Simulated scan of single mutants.
Amino acid sequence: MKLKYPQILIFSAISLTLSNYSFAQDGVVIIDQDKDITTLLEYKKDVKTADLYKIQLDFGSRSEAMSLEQNFQNTFSEWPAEVVYETPNYKVWVGNFSTRLEADIALKKIKTKFSKAMVFEPKKED
Rank of each mutant, 00 (worst) to 15 (best):
K44S: 07
K2A: 09
K4A: 12
L18D: 03
T99A: 04
E64F: 07
F59P: 02
A24Q: 11
M1L: 11
F11Q: 05
V29I: 12
V94M: 01
E121G: 10
K4L: 14
F114A: 00
W93M: 04
Q33T: 15
A81R: 01
E64R: 07
S77M: 11
T112C: 04
A13R: 03
V119G: 02
N96D: 07
F76W: 02
K4W: 12
K44P: 00
M1C: 12
S98L: 08
A103E: 02
E42G: 06
L101E: 15
R62N: 06
I110K: 01
V29K: 07
F23T: 10
L9R: 09
P80V: 10
S98Y: 06
Q33M: 15
P6V: 11
A65S: 07
N89D: 06
K35P: 14
Q7N: 14
Y21M: 11
S63T: 12
Y43S: 04
F11N: 06
W93L: 05
F11I: 06
S77D: 14
E42T: 10
P122L: 11
E82Q: 14
N74K: 14
V84P: 01
L16E: 04
V92A: 00
F72A: 03
K124G: 02
P88T: 02
K113H: 12
K123A: 13
